[in-house]
Design a protein around this nucleic acid. Sequence first.
DNA 1: AATCTAGGCAACCGCGCACGA
DNA 2: TTCGTGCGCGGTTGCCTAGAT
Length: 284
Amino acid sequence: MNAQVRTETDQEQDMGVRKGPWTIEEDSLLDHYISIHGEGHWNTAARCAGLKRTGKSCRLRWLNYLRPNVRRGNITLQEQLLILQLHSRWGNRWSKIAQQLPGRTDNEIKNYWRTRVQKQAKQLKCDVNSKQFRDTMRYVWIPRLIERIRAESESPMDQPIISTPTYYSSQIDIPVAASKSGSDLMDQNFMPEISGISDSLDVHVSPGSDLTVSQNPPCGHYSDSMQNGSGSYPENDCGSWGWYRHGMDMQGVEQERYGLVGGGDSLENLWNEEDIWFLHQQLM
DNA sequence: AATCTAGGCAACCGCGCACGA
DNA sequence: TTCGTGCGCGGTTGCCTAGAT
């Protein structure tokens, strides 16, 4: 390293900047400072609050932990569903996705994705960006989640114990309250029979898990028609499922079988705006 | 009971953007 | 226009813990 180019890290070390887990005292100092001066100006906050932390570290601690109304743990089915859908639309735009999940942080959603979703991709022996994985998510997991949401709404006594009661108020009864069954959350025009598709994918979801695949076909088992393309689908503004607009067979099949018309991106329409808006309202 | 391993999560790092001087 | 600073974001790392052996 050029001796004259001092990095931020070098300077932090000189200043005795603390790293690692936050202590209760540090939390208290930061919380107290922000309660008086408000958010922002993180470097100033770190300095004036008497914290030997970087502004970045203070900001992160506040946003991910100290901030009021931060929800922790227990990603709900509805939230999982929304995450899957929004990720399909926006890709790894974690902060943008987090904005649609009140109380959730981008970090938490990112961790959820990496630990739960990517784990499933690993079990499938394929990449999260592969067509197989996307199809599995679309045709198996999302319908499965919707079914579970519907099942829970129909038998509220079976609902799991929730850590944040205010969130799980009666309004969580999504399908009933909005005259939409769980499956209605998915635009039927875009959902072929789940069984048929999942059979063709040779993928089965374990009944008791959210995103658990019980049979793991290597990607090579995937039918040629489903593997049309390179296997990598660069993300675009229309979502990480942008591959769908590239003349994939499934699009033609769906259009033929379900009468898709119009020039819209069929994955964009996997859920319509109303569905996404409605789910979002349930989470507010 | 001790050790190993994998999962989950908090925190850090580096990059890029916005903005003001 | 350039430079410095602050901030936000996505990617990565490393620690802690629970379960398996």
